[in-house]
Amino acid sequence: MKKKVGSFFHHLLLIILVVIWLIPILWLVVTAFSGYPGINKTHFFPETWTISNFTTLFLKPDSVVQYGRWFSNTLIIAIFTCIISTVFVLMVSYAFSCMRFKGRKTLMSLSLILNMFPGVLSMIAVYFVLKSLGLTNSHLGMIIVYSAGSGLGYLIVKGFMDTVPVSLREAARLEGASELQIFTKIMLPICKPIIVYQVINSFLLPWGDFVFAKLMLNSGISKDYTVAIGLYNMLDRSLVNQYFSIFCAGGFIVSIPISILFIIMQKFYVEGVTGGSVKG
């Protein structure tokens, strides 16, 4: 009996916590269906319900809302960013984890320190570097911004590779495999969980960034935007009273695929991220 009471309070506490964590999300979802376009400050639930916010997003693009375009822009950027940065990170991690060469430690610590430099600071210089390459206002430029420096974020993947027994590689070497073959045929399959983690992580980056995107995509032409700047833009002083519920609808839609990815990633997060540190 005592156990049951304990269990009841245990779960009650969990429910309370989950409610705290989900209230803002619930507000997002219900506001997405609100008939009042501005910010509802007196009632949690909307007074009138509608799905017109969603139809505006997809069926009635205007100069402010080009959701379909934003979504496909972001998707393209995200796919390429994800491919390039995953490849970069894997390459750097393999070099640092499985190979021994002069200056390795120096390079590793140097990259760690570089990775600590606040991106916000060098943003304007990055902009002018890209401008001199003629890549501002282009999706290619955005892909470069998101993926070019990704090699610096090798730490977690390298940690995982460190836990792979060296004997596997030794055996392959004895059979005459080159490093390239060891990398592609042996290491990559073992690293599957951490690759999934890396893929999803880098895929998510363009969906959430508005600082760089706002600076780089500065033509003011709505159909060039990514989801993040498009949505951020709706909260402009002159727009927020007409677009807040559409903003919520847009936020809700973009969260669906991301939630699914996160739920898939959950397993790999636990296995991959901590795998390296625990097993080691």
Binding site: A95, F101, L114, F117, I124, A125, A148, G149, G151
Partner: peptide
């Protein structure tokens, strides 16, 4: 092999991190 592996990522880092940092 490490040279091949590091060449492109290094170029990216130079372009996106090192040069901007020096400019700032």
């Amino acid at each position: 092999f490490h040279l091949t592996l590091l060449a492109l990522p290094t170029l990216g880092v130079i372009l996106m991190n090192i040069i901007p940092i020096f400019v700032m």
